[in-house]
Amino acid sequence: MALMHPQFDPVALSLGPVAIHWYGLMYLAAFAQFLLLGRLRVKQAHWQSLGMNYQALEDLLFKGVLGVIVGGRLGYVLFYMPGHYLSHPLDILKVWEGGMSFHGGFLGVLVALWWVGKKNGQGFFKMTDLIAPLVPFGLALGRLGNFINGELWGRPTDLSWGMIFPQAGDLLIRHPSQLYQMAGEGICLGLFLWWYAAKPRATGAVSAVFLMGYGFFRFISEFAREPDDFLGLLSLGLSMGQWLSLPMIVLGLILYLSRHKTLDKA
Rank of each mutant, 00 (worst) to 15 (best):
L130R: 05
T128D: 06
V109R: 03
L233Y: 15
A208H: 02
P136S: 00
G237H: 12
E222N: 07
R218C: 01
D129Y: 04
G64P: 12
K119A: 15
G241F: 03
K118S: 14
G241M: 09
A224L: 14
P89I: 11
A112W: 03
G232S: 05
L139V: 15
W153A: 05
A132L: 06
I173G: 02
G67K: 06
K94V: 05
L236P: 05
K126C: 09
F62W: 09
V70P: 07
M163K: 01
L74W: 08
E226R: 13
L134N: 04
Y256F: 15
S160R: 07
F192G: 02
L255A: 00
M81P: 00
M26F: 09
H5L: 12
G154W: 11
N53I: 04
L15Y: 12
K199S: 08
G98S: 05
S235I: 04
F137L: 13
K126Y: 02
G213W: 10
G108A: 13
Y85N: 05
M1Q: 06
G252A: 09
H84P: 06
V250A: 10
V42Y: 03
L233M: 11
F192T: 01
V18Q: 00
L244T: 02
P227M: 12
G138K: 05
D229H: 14
A32M: 11
E222R: 07
M240I: 03
Y54G: 14
S87D: 08
W194L: 10
A132K: 06
A56K: 13
R41H: 11
W161R: 04
L159W: 15
Y196H: 11
L3E: 08
G184D: 04
G123Q: 06
R41W: 05
R259G: 04
L13N: 04
G105R: 09
W114D: 13
L60R: 01
V77S: 06
W47C: 07
D264Y: 07
G162D: 08
D129R: 00
S258H: 15
V111Q: 02
L40K: 15
L13V: 01
L28W: 14
P89K: 11
L231W: 06
A112D: 01
A205R: 03
G83C: 00
R41Q: 15
L107T: 01
